[in-house]
């Protein structure tokens, strides 16, 4: 395998979990609900994926189990932010903290205190990449078509841009948002499951390591389109692959500095591309009929 090939293989393999998370966030954001809690949802997905795979001895069922669990988490998230109109940023942060504590505790309960890593089956490879990588690429196309060519997709975008208009058309804004939040959370959950089942085949505490936030940055960098998000994710993936390369090179640069690359990259990107006005108009604003909040 040439250097370039192996580099690209690392890019695709390591960016796929972020890609799923980013597409899930994209769906939620376009419907008008901010999701800072993607990090926590990924973590829950990663954990429940391992649990599901362990219980069923089937990695795909493990992935589905992760989606089901994060779907329920999404429902709770929707209940707080849509029905109860709580501040979406605060709820998201609370979910992150909760997820970290919860997965750690449950992992120790389920797999024992000694926490010697519990190995489960991993996704099989298909050519150079594991199967979900292809699923992820296909999903970019599915999302693009969904958001631009289908009526439910237009409803989602309408709910995020101008919910009053959607309401006046007799379409329920809150139902549209609930559906987007639950579906988005499930996609994010699968991204988390890919992290534990595709790349590592075991769960470690706090293994998402900020990937949920990087996914959030990718959505903004990608200008709120599925295609753009994918390209942005590749940039971040390249950043991550670069850290492995540079570490292997023994360049003398402290490894801590090299490990910073993906995170610095996301800060820079959001600083330059995260101007107000690039996202949906009604992002983060709970909807109520009489216009009051």
């Amino acid at each position: 395998m040439s250097v370039i090939e192996s580099f690209l293989s690392v890019v695709f393999n390591s960016s796929t979990s972020i890609l799923f998370a980013a597409l899930g966030i994209l769906l939620m954001h376009l419907s008008g609900v901010v999701n800072i809690g993607a990090e926590g949802m990924m973590l829950i997905g990663a954990f429940s994926g391992v649990v599901g795979s362990h219980l069923t001895s089937n990695v795909w069922l493990g992935g589905l189990f992760a989606m089901a669990v994060t779907g329920v988490v999404g429902l709770v998230y929707g209940y707080c932010t849509i029905t109860y109109k709580a501040n979406q940023v605060v709820v998201g942060i609370a979910f992150n903290i909760l997820a970290q504590g919860l997965t750690t505790t449950l992992y120790r309960i389920v797999f024992g205190m000694n926490s010697s890593t519990m190995k489960v089956d991993a996704f099989s490879k298909l050519g150079a990449f594991s199967t979900p990588v292809y699923v992820g690429l296909g999903f970019v196309i599915v999302m693009t078509v969904f958001l631009n060519k289908t009526k439910p997709g237009l409803k989602v975008r309408g709910a995020g841009e101008y919910p009053q208009a959607i309401d006046s058309m007799g379409i329920s804004v809150n139902f549209t948002r609930y559906a987007s939040v639950v579906a988005g959370s499930m996609i994010i959950g699968f991204g988390g499951a890919y992290l534990s089942l595709g790349q590592l085949s075991f769960f470690t505490e706090n293994m998402t390591d900020g990937r949920g936030y990087i996914a959030l940055a990718a959505v903004i960098f990608g200008r709120y389109t599925a295609l753009g998000t994918w390209l942005a994710v590749l940039v971040f993936g390249a950043g991550e692959a670069l850290t492995y390369r540079l570490q292997a090179l023994n360049s003398g640069v402290p490894s801590q500095m090299i490990l910073m690359i993906p995170y610095v990259l996301s800060i820079v990107v959001v600083a330059f591309f995260g101007q107000k006005g690039s996202g949906p108009e009604a992002l983060g604003i709970p909807f109520s009929k009489d216009g009051r909040q």
Binding site: K151, K155, E161, Y162, Q164, A165, I171, P280
Partner: peptide, 16 residues
Amino acid sequence: HFMLIPALTVLENIVL
């Protein structure tokens, strides 16, 4: 205040 979604096209608004 018009109930049209500014980011969408005329056609998309009418379809919705």
